[in-house]
């Protein structure tokens, strides 16, 4: 469970990242955060991943109240969260296996179980046999799958994805989305920021729209295209993406 109670974040230059955010995301939900650049999506995700603290309000993730926690304790929350970035944030001098092993190691998993966990996870994301590859030897889609595998291997309860399809072609992007949907079906809460309306239309999930740091719209599953009046062709777009994927 993620709860934002009247959360604002003011930066040192006096500008606000988000203002008066009230939000509740239940366990197992799949939520899109959309909005133009500067709308506050990244600030919201940074609050979720404890990279920044709110200047006002309360952020609660599961049993933790981020606002009250000391910086040295934040690792406890981060261990429950898997993060997927647009730029992957993989270590390029380490293999796929080592990148995932690092996540397991820092989150306190036992080393004897590493191999099985890593190989199982790679199979789940469709990267079996790529464990000895270095990131430079992988395609964009494979890199993002590696990042997702790293987040999944630690059995994170919440997966946060910041524009994970931003740098990917439509076919690869669709593959990544399908993977995220599978992850969500297995019980993991997924919060994904994107500015791609086509993806949002096609997935039919809860959509939170941000503008100038405020939530201007929060629609439940499948209601987004009706609300937005922009997505009458969503099925057609979805089919088009699926066709490209094939």
């Amino acid at each position: 469970m993620i709860i934002f109670e009247n959360v604002s974040k003011k930066f040192s230059d006096g500008t606000y990242g988000v203002v008066g955010i009230n939000l509740e995301i239940k366990d197992g939900e799949f939520v899109f955060l959309i909005g133009q650049s500067g709308a506050g999506k990244t600030t919201l995700l940074k609050l979720l991943t404890c990279q920044i603290k709110p200047t006002e309000g309360i952020v609660k993730i599961n049993k933790f109240n981020i606002t009250k926690m000391k910086p040295s304790e934040l690792y406890k929350i981060r261990r429950e969260i898997g993060i997927v970035f647009q730029d992957f944030k993989l270590l390029f001098d380490q293999t796929v296996y080592e990148n995932i092993a690092l996540a397991l190691e820092v989150s306190g998993h036992k080393e004897k179980n590493f191999k099985k966990t890593i190989l199982d996870t790679l199979q789940k994301v469709g990267l079996e046999g790529k464990e000895k590859y270095f990131p430079a030897q992988l395609s964009g889609g494979e890199l993002q799958r590696t990042a997702i595998a790293r987040a999944l291997a630690t059995e994170a309860k919440i997966l946060i994805a910041d524009e994970p399809t931003g740098d990917l072609d439509p076919k690869t992007a669709w593959g990544v989305l399908q993977l995220l949907e599978e992850v969500n079906k297995s019980g993991t809460t997924v919060v994904m920021a994107t500015h791609n309306h086509n993806i949002v239309d096609a997935m039919k999930k809860r959509v939170i729209t941000l503008e100038h740091g405020r939530i201007i719209n929060d629609v439940q599953k499948g209601e987004y295209e009706v609300e937005s009046h922009k997505s009458k062709k969503s099925e057609a777009i979805k089919s088009e993406i699926e066709e490209k994927a094939l």
């Binding site: 261990r79 996540a103 820092v106 630690t154």
Partner: peptide, 16 residues
């Protein structure tokens, strides 16, 4: 720095 940032985000303790 980059590696440290990743380790922080993955849930590494300060001492780690």
């Amino acid at each position: 720095r980059y590696e440290i940032e990743i380790m922080h985000l993955l849930g590494a303790t300060p001492w780690y």
